[in-house]
Amino acid sequence: MRAAVRLAAWVYAVAVYGFIFLPVVVLVLFSLQATSFPIPPFTGPSLRWYQAVLSDARLTSALVNSLLVAVLSSLASVTLGFLSAWGFARFVLPGSAILRGLITLPLTVSYLIIGMGLLVLFNWAGVPKSLLAAGIGHVVINLPLCFAIIYSQMGDHQINIERAARDLGAAEWKVLLMITVPVMAPAIFAGFFLSMTFSWDEFVISFLLTRFETTLPVEIWNLLRSGLNPKTNAVGSLVFAVSIVLVVFFELTLLRRKPA
């Protein structure tokens, strides 16, 4: 009986793993396709489509744009999120609960609607479509996330550490730089990392708010118009590889420290 349950569990787990990895395996496999269609039979291996991606100026500049937007918007999100979390955690402010609710509100609204709102506003105010506009949108979606992560980690323990520093004569800005930021570093880093991944992968807002210069997901979307194409496979596999490196790095640095 117990052995039967174990066997069924194994079969089920393998089936789900298969389902989860099927599209990824197909994607990577046919990115190595030698001929022009990423469909069976497999004719590779060849790296020609990777070469095609790396020599495509539109894709490489989109990649640089994506990185730029991700880094800058995440820096802005984490800075604004950290300062506001610090303010709300350390001081009694009138209407604090409502204001905190306001900051986290964008978390409950879909990206499409946030993008739509900004599009309507910018259109009305005459702000042209640009990477900056998309970056502003990315801060709107990531600021509440950074705020929530950092605010939830600011416990009484940290308050007392800061009090001790003030008690020993540290000025407010020194408390911030020498005590609060280092103590909160894991939460700040987690906020930054998540913002990076979400911004890096974000499509709808960038799609609505950029025009000529755009981000990688939008450029990949444009590639899709040409149907199934090994070049799309190659760029997708590259993006996947970057994500895996980031996740493994995150796993090894941040999460490793948790049990201590």
Binding site: V26, D201, F203, L216, L224, F240
Partner: peptide, 11 residues
């Protein structure tokens, strides 16, 4: 953690 667009394309 892969790109959302790429994942749909893979399917």
């Amino acid at each position: 953690w892969t790109s959302y667009v790429v994942r749909s394309y893979s399917w």
